[in-house]
Design a protein around this nucleic acid. Sequence first.
DNA 1: ATGAAAGCGCTAACAC
DNA 2: GTGTTAGCGCTTTCAT
Lengths: 331, 331
Amino acid sequence: MKPNATLKQLSETLEMSISTVSRALKNHPDISEATKQKVWDLANMLEYEPNTNAINLRTNNSKLFGLIVPVISNYFYDSLIASLEEETRLHGYSLLILQSGDDSIVELNNLKLCKQNRVAGIFVSVTIGTKDIAPFLKLADNDIPVIFLDKVPTQENCNKICVGDAEAATLAAKALIEKNKKSVLAFFGNKNMSISQERLEAFAHYFKVNAPRVKLQIEEAINPSEAYNKTLNSWKQADAPDAIFCMSDEILTGVMKAMQQLKLQIPSEVGIIAISNGFIPKLYFPEITYVETSGHKLGKLAYTRMVSCLAGSGFTLNLKVESLLVEGGSL
Amino acid sequence: MKPNATLKQLSETLEMSISTVSRALKNHPDISEATKQKVWDLANMLEYEPNTNAINLRTNNSKLFGLIVPVISNYFYDSLIASLEEETRLHGYSLLILQSGDDSIVELNNLKLCKQNRVAGIFVSVTIGTKDIAPFLKLADNDIPVIFLDKVPTQENCNKICVGDAEAATLAAKALIEKNKKSVLAFFGNKNMSISQERLEAFAHYFKVNAPRVKLQIEEAINPSEAYNKTLNSWKQADAPDAIFCMSDEILTGVMKAMQQLKLQIPSEVGIIAISNGFIPKLYFPEITYVETSGHKLGKLAYTRMVSCLAGSGFTLNLKVESLLVEGGSL
DNA sequence: ATGAAAGCGCTAACAC
DNA sequence: GTGTTAGCGCTTTCAT
């Protein structure tokens, strides 16, 4: 067990003061080239690595962000996380990633962990059961920015970055109408989630205004198998739909499984469109037409917003990442 | 900007010494109940949170592990990471997750970050280009265990946890033979990766020994579209295979896209079997039969091994997570 | 150009 | 049962 090298150790063997060594290592202009050289040589030889804990303690700030998400392994979050991790790392920060498992108690514990680690800022995608966001907002007192991502609270006075739910749903509705679909089976997720509500409202509204005669069958599907079963049921009825809209990848997978079972031809017998991150739609033939809601873009945007907040942006902002239609061959 | 509460602050307003406060907060038996009560009350009121940096500095150890992976967003890693994060967190540790982007320079930088943060141990899945693992092995000098995961180096003298490549491939081969398949198209990934080599070798060997008359067509597919194209090509030939083996999810997605395009009936016209984490196979109808290589199990096993190492297990170990056949309806 | 010294927040050995 | 003290590794002000 060889302990890590320290400034003290370097200073002793070099017979210099700790401050000189410290300055040399950060290329302080006051230090002579000769001294720097000696210091660097020994530091390299001993594989000196500065102790982040000591630095953070001394300087009272850290290059660490916290990220709290319901779960890492998910159609959407994995790309969001990947993007956020990369963005922070490339800017000299690290990311402490914590899963809440969609449990608000765990979420609060994770928040505590972030505080104890004196993170410089927090990104959080709240659980479905998070009612009280006061614990998060209180961080503002300590100048710790909090950026809510994707699953955001309904309150107004906070920084939020989300997918443009209404915009995405509207784009999908528009595409369906343009393809002249007459009977659309539309799946939305858990009714209690704002994401479902907003997508549903915008979707239904667009049809009402622009194509009131299209038959709209709205269904709730809280998981793939529910989407699967409800799709199969629809084809047991007399008048099957000529298009299906899937609010999420989760739903899309269930629907597509049913499509395969029913051996339906896409798009000739039935058109499919989804709102998605883009990975799942590309698994099928033909590839599914989808409105992209990019986790990657969301991560980048969130980081940018964090930087502004750190720089002292006083107000709160509600940002949306733009959606766009990606044509597959399914509609 | 309200700074965080400190022991000093508490001790001053309570007119006690810092050590008393510190002891009270950790329920040291020496401290009277009355004192503890007072301390806790104030601590709660002021939302005192111990400063992890100070603790780590003082105690010279941290409750932090590092995890270095090529990429977070991946068929396999996301579940591995999720499992590892959960496991560590439930045991009081945090996980610093770093992506190398499959770049060995970045990987080395990430390693440095881990050192600077004085992590208690490191999990790493090396990049495809990582030749020299000396920088990792050197951590043993500092009593920092290193556990290689999944993508492991070929050297022997290190702790490795991987999927049982040979076992998984053998199980798949066995299943194909039992189903009496006569002509198998088998896809393997990048030939330079040990994972491909080991799976291929075991697979081919099992056929050679147990069913030498089965026609085996071995193909390399380094991404989904290559698997897709080569599958399409196979059906342009006169004698199409009666089964396809996919070494990975990545390959499976390409193959299945081709299946849909060719409108082949599974399993009547062609049987499919894959080695997979389990998510992708369940997207299709019928669900794909696969040999499970679980990222979840791998994560748990890795954590367990880390604990042993921390407890002083001197030797190195090469552990494999068991594979098992999961029957879908595709074979 | 270099050094001395204080102090970040905390723990723990040693007093009493 | 509580207080005193030293020190973890580092930065930074103030001297020289």
